[in-house]
Nucleic acid binder design. Sequence first.
DNA 1: TGACCGGAAGAGAACGATTGCCGAGTTTGG
DNA 2: CCAAACTCGGCAATCGTTCTCTTCCGGTCA
Lengths: 368, 368
Amino acid sequence: MDRPGRHRAGAGRAERTAHVSQGKDARPATLREVAEAVGCSVATVSRVLAGDRPVGPELARRVQEAARELGYLPNQVARALRSRSTATVGLVLPQITNPFFPALMREVEHALHDQGRALLLADSADDPALEAERIELLIARQVDGLIVAPVDQEHSTRTLAKAAARVPVVLLDRCVDVVQADAVTVDNTAGIRLLLEHLKSLGHSRFWFLGAAGDASAAVERRAAFQEWAARHAAFWRVELGDFSVGFGQHAAARAVTAAAAHRPDALVCANDLIAAGALQRLRELGVSVPGELAVTGFDDIDLASLTSPCLTTVRQPNRELAAEAARMLAARIQQPEASARAVRLTPTLVARGSTVALESAQGSRAL
Amino acid sequence: MDRPGRHRAGAGRAERTAHVSQGKDARPATLREVAEAVGCSVATVSRVLAGDRPVGPELARRVQEAARELGYLPNQVARALRSRSTATVGLVLPQITNPFFPALMREVEHALHDQGRALLLADSADDPALEAERIELLIARQVDGLIVAPVDQEHSTRTLAKAAARVPVVLLDRCVDVVQADAVTVDNTAGIRLLLEHLKSLGHSRFWFLGAAGDASAAVERRAAFQEWAARHAAFWRVELGDFSVGFGQHAAARAVTAAAAHRPDALVCANDLIAAGALQRLRELGVSVPGELAVTGFDDIDLASLTSPCLTTVRQPNRELAAEAARMLAARIQQPEASARAVRLTPTLVARGSTVALESAQGSRAL
DNA sequence: TGACCGGAAGAGAACGATTGCCGAGTTTGG
DNA sequence: CCAAACTCGGCAATCGTTCTCTTCCGGTCA
C-alpha cells in the first residue's frame, strides 16, 4: 500500500501512462489496410474516397464503412509527394511581435483555411539573412506558395527573386519593386496625406516625422510621402529616423519636447502605431498635453491604438481585405503560374481620435 | 475600372512577366538529376549529401559541385514520407489576436527552429469544434507533434485525447487535467496571490475580480485563486465574468463605478491584461482616478501593459521559458513516446506599475 | 452471333529520398 | 601469396497516394 497524503497526482498519472501507450496503435490506417479489410484493391479505395470516378454502390458502402471503422486519415505527405502539391503556404513576417502582423496573420490563416490550405509560419526577425534561410526551408518543404512581407527592399531582392523563380510568391504589406511578383499593399502615400491634411485642417503646421530607417517599402513610402507633402505645406518640418518600435517613439518624443523653440513641433507624425504609442506614453510622463500642446498620429490602427491615452488618431489598414486579397492572388497564381504579375493597392482610411482632436469634440464635428 | 477605392498597376508590369516564366525552371533539381549530371547512382548522391557513409573524395567533390550548380534542395516531402518524420510541429492557439499569444508564438517558433523543425500554425478561434477540425488536419499532415493551448477543459478533452493517441502532444499555457499529456503552464494561483498580497499591502480590501467565464484552465485557476484568497482576506469581494477581452473590461469597469456604495470596490483584479486595459481606458473616460480611487491589476504582462495610462501592474508570464520548455518537452516526447507524462509549472513574477502604485512612489518605497 | 461499348475494378508505375544488401575492387595480415 | 577485412558504389525495396493502363463483364446493335 502506498503512503497516504503523498503525490496522488503522480500515482494517478503513472497509471494513465499505460493508457497512452495502449491507445497509440503506432501508425494510423493506410489505404492498403482498408483495401485488405474490404478485400479490394488500393485503387478502388482511393477512388471511393476521392469520389472522382464511379464505383459500385455496394462496394463503395463497404469501403466507406471500413475506412470509418479503421479511422482512416489520408496521409497528406504521401498525397503531396504524388500530386506535387502540399496544400500548404508559407507566411514570412518580419516581426511577429508588432501587433499589426498577428492581426494580418490571423486573417491570412482564415483565408487560407477557407481554401483548404495550411499555414507554415516563419519569423524573419527583421534580418535579411534569416529571411533567406527561412524561405529556403519553406521551399524545401514544397510549399505551394509564399506570402512574404519582405524585410528590406535592398537586401531581400536576391532572396525573393530566387524564391519567385521556384514557387509562386505574393508580397504582402511591403513590396520590392525590382522583383517580379504579385503584391498587395496599402497606399502609404495616401495614408500619410490623409493624416497630414487632417492635422493641417486642425491648424497644425510644424511637423516632426518619426519614421523607420531602412529600405522596407512601407518605411520608405511613408517617409517620402511626408517629405513631399511637408515641403509644400508645412511651416516647419523635420524627419527623425529609428525603427518601428515603442522604444524609438519614447526616445524621439523626448527629443521633440526638449528641442530648441525654433525646431519644436506642434504635431508628431509617426510611421506606425507602435512609435506613436511610445511617444504618447513618454509625453504623458513629461506632462505634455496631447493634443493641446502636441498632436500625435500613428499608422496601422492596431487594437492598441484605441487604448492609449488619449486614443490614437491613425490610419486604418484594411487587413482583412489585405489578407483576403493576398490569399486570392496566391491561389490564382498557383493555378496560373505564368499569368502576368498584378499589384493591388488598397486605400487606408483615417480614424480620428483623441490624440489630434480634443476629447469633447472627438465624436462631433471636425473643427474648422 | 473595377472597384472603387483600389487601383491596380497592371500595365507597367506586363513586360517583366516574361522574366518570371523564364526563370521558372518548373521543378527544382532532384537527386536523380544530380546523379545523372555526375554520372553516378542516386544512392551515392544521397550518401554524399547526408554524409552518413564514406564516399571517394573525388566523386564526393563532383557531387557537391553538381548539387550546388543545379541548385539541389532535398525534397522534404519525399524525405518525410520515407523517414516517417516531417520535422514539423503544429501549434494551435485559441486567440491569435490576444497579444499574449503572438509573443508566445514567436518564442515557440524560435525554439522549434533551433531544433530544425517548422511550425504549422492553426487558430482555433476559441471554438472547440474548430479546434477539433484544425487538429485533425494537422495530424493528417503528419506533424511530428502538437503544441496546443486548449480552448476549454471540458470540450477539448475528447479532441485532445484522440490527438494524443496519435501524436505527441504538449499542452501550453492551459491544461486539461483529464488528458494524459505533457503540459507547461504558469502557476496561476501563485500569480493571483502575488497581486492580491500586493494590493493588500497597499491597503486595498474591497475587490472585484473581472474574470473570464468558461472552462479554460487559466480562467478557472485564476478565478478559484481569487475566490479562495478573497474569502479569507477581503473586506468585500465579488466576481464578474465575461471573456478575455478589452470590451468586457470596459463594460465591467463601468459597472464597478456605478455600483451601489456598499458594493463598490477599491481594486479591480482582472484575469488578464486585455481586460485590465479595457477597464483602465473606461475609467479614464469616466474620470475615475487610478490608482487613487480604484487600483487595477492585469495578468500576463503583454507589451501593451507598459503603455496604458497609468501603466499596468500585472504578473509576468515567462513566455520565453514557457515556449522553450514546451519545445524541449515535445522533442523529448517525440524521441520517447512512451515516457510518462510530465507537468511543468513556471512561476510568474509581480510587476508593479502605476495602476496600483502612485507615480511618484512607483520607484521608491512601498507605502505603509 | 459477333463486334462494340461502357462501367467497374485491378495491376502497377510513378513521386523523390533513404537504406539494407550485395558485389567488385583494394588493402592488409598471416 | 592468399584469404580476410574493408571501401566504395549500385540495385532495388520502401514510404502511402494517385493515376494511367488493362482487363473483365454484361449489354446493345447490326
